[in-house]
Design a protein around this nucleic acid. Structure first.
Length: 494
RNA sequence: GGCCCUAUGGUCAAGCGGUUAAGACGCUGCCCUCUCAAGGCGGAAUCAGGAGUUCAAUUCUCCUUAGGGUCACCA
């Protein structure tokens, strides 16, 4: 990768620049993922930068959530606040003194100006613009006489610095996925660069930092598409090279009322942490969201993070928004669970096993065997095997099964026979139990179903069980099994 | 409302002028089967509408419609 001739600029550098809001939803995660993939698939560098220019919205511990999420997701950054790097500091609040001189440079060049309008004035401006028209800033201070500006500055009147936007013409910017986008300049407001408190606005800090940190690919959600021309104008004002823009299609959620909108908390558990808590595996989440808005060249769907790095390319990113589909996520999760080794599976399931069948470690492998193809989340185990803890109260009607020709009468009879056969079994392993019941069916000249069905019902008290009669007998052990069969007979004689 | 973006089945989507319009989830039928899964084999379901361009439009252009985004001293 280290080519002597390659300049620093030829190395792809992307950045994930979250605000520490204390919440990381899958949209943000996917942006981070794509930024990581774009960098890594090109052998480039993935940078983490914390954008905390809004001191009013600072949340305690919010940056830790960002670190944890990135860490759990396996998106390791090469530079960032916690590990440093050649372009630090990587927290905007630590770079505060850096931004204002750039803004003042633009002022001195006539590309920006001081604005002394109060917040009240701006508010009333907006309030006056009732009805359909939404008025922006009226550029009141754009052409203040130099003397007046000096006077106000020396009086210490609070001010912001705004960019002087062109009033006519159009601005075109190029996006990697959306192509050329042109907007009329009159739509662009004289945006604030430096706030009254001296802090830069998000847009301004973003551009300065991206430039200073040598970011080559700016990857972000398409909600920023409409502010992209402003960015271009700013790069132009400084005479800086414009980075490659990669805008990502939005991830949307479906509300309870069926309406679709940008994914947010109102769509339920859309935070990465929420999904983990709900039992979704990190690998499944990453795999799924990678495919939300990106498509490989072939029809493959299962990808590890490393495989994504090797396969990802920008031209596979789609333009249209995608709705987050829990069903598909569920399927991915099931796929990942089924692909686990028994040991891996056990490490997730052990606490539930111990709760369900304490001290019965010898049957845990069997539990795994039964469960692995049947669950899509580990949280489902308890419910699926709840009958192991206690025989549920059940309606005897569930013994009746047309297909296996099971009736209340022959069930009762069969349970009686089975109780005898099973109780005389010398050992309680899969082979003996299975053979016992199948040979019984053979001797009676009936289908296996006719003996298996009533036994399974009696022993589980449930119509639907994971696994068959033999497996459940083994899980319960001989004593408990016989006890339940006997209870089943009582139940049928009532 | 202005501006911007998007438009292939319920969902994710391939397609990039000529195809029987892939594949996956979900739904569904059958097989397997003591139930439920898993697995195997099938099925239903898509080019929003209208004008052009072209020998030929899902594909290119325009309009309409629909959805979304954005219009802060938030990010």
């Amino acid at each position: 990768m280290s080519n002597e001739n390659s300049t620093l600029h030829s190395v792809v550098r992307t950045r994930f620049a979250p605000s520490p809001t204390g919440f990381m939803h899958v949209g943000n995660l996917r942006t981070a993922l794509y930024e990581y993939l774009i960098a890594k698939s090109a052998g480039g560098t993935f940078v983490l930068r914390i954008e905390d220019t809004d001191q009013e919205r600072l949340v305690d511990g919010a940056t830790d959530i960002i670190y944890n999420t990135l860490n759990k997701a396996g998106l390791k950054h090469d530079e960032g606040p916690d590990i440093g790097g050649p372009y630090g500091p990587y927290v905007q609040s630590e770079r505060m003194q850096l931004y204002k001189p750039y803004a003042e440079q633009l002022v001195s060049e006539g590309k920006a100006y001081y604005c002394f309008c109060t917040k009240d004035r701006l508010d009333s401006l907006r309030a006056q613009a009732s009805g359909p028209d939404i008025a922006g800033y009226d550029r009141h201070c754009r052409d203040l006489p130099a003397a007046e500006i000096q006077e106000k500055l020396s009086e210490g009147v609070p001010y912001v610095i705004r960019q002087r936007m062109p009033l006519t013409g159009t601005t075109t910017f190029c996006d990697c996925v959306y192509g050329d986008i042109t907007v009329p300049n009159k739509e662009l407001e004289d945006q604030v660069l430096i706030k009254t408190d001296g802090f830069p606005t998000y847009n301004f800090a973003n551009i300065i930092d991206d430039h200073l940190m040598n970011i080559t690919h700016v990857v972000r959600g398409s909600e920023y598409l409409s502010s992209a021309p402003k960015y271009n104008l700013l790069y132009d004002a400084f005479g800086w090279e414009i980075p490659v823009y990669v805008h990502l299609p939005l991830i949307q959620g479906k509300g309870a009322d069926g309406t679709v909108s940008k994914l947010s908390k109102r769509h339920g558990a859309t935070g990465f942490e929420d999904l983990l808590k709900d039992g979704y595996l990190t690998e499944a989440i990453i795999n799924y969201i990678a495919l939300l808005g990106w498509c490989p060249k072939d029809t493959r769907e299962i990808f590890s993070l490393d495989e994504l790095v090797n396969t990802f390319s920008i031209d596979g990113i789609s333009k249209s928004p995608a709705i987050f589909d829990y069903d598909k996520l569920e399927w991915f999760n099931g796929e990942y669970i089924r692909a686990m080794s028994p040991e891996e599976f056990l490490s997730h399931a052990l606490p539930v096993y111990e709760d369900l069948l304490p001290g019965r470690a010898e049957v845990y492998p069997l539990m795994t065997q039964i469960l692995q193809p049947r669950i899509t989340r580990f949280s489902q185990i308890e419910e699926k095997l709840s009958f192991l803890k206690a025989l549920p109260d059940y309606d005897p009607e569930i013994y009746v099964h047309k297909k296996s020709k099971t009736t209340l009468e022959n069930s009762l009879e069969m349970l009686g026979i089975c109780e005898g056969e099973l109780s005389s079994l010398p050992s309680w392993d899969h082979e003996s139990v299975s053979l016992c019941l199948t040979s019984l069916a053979e001797r009676l000249a009936v289908k296996n179903a006719l003996v298996m069905w009533p036994v399974r019902i009696a022993v589980s008290g449930t119509l639907v069980t994971p696994g068959g009669a033999v497996e459940i007998l083994l899980l319960l052990g001989k004593d408990e099994s016989l006890r339940r069969i006997s209870l089943g007979r009582q139940r049928l004689t009532q």
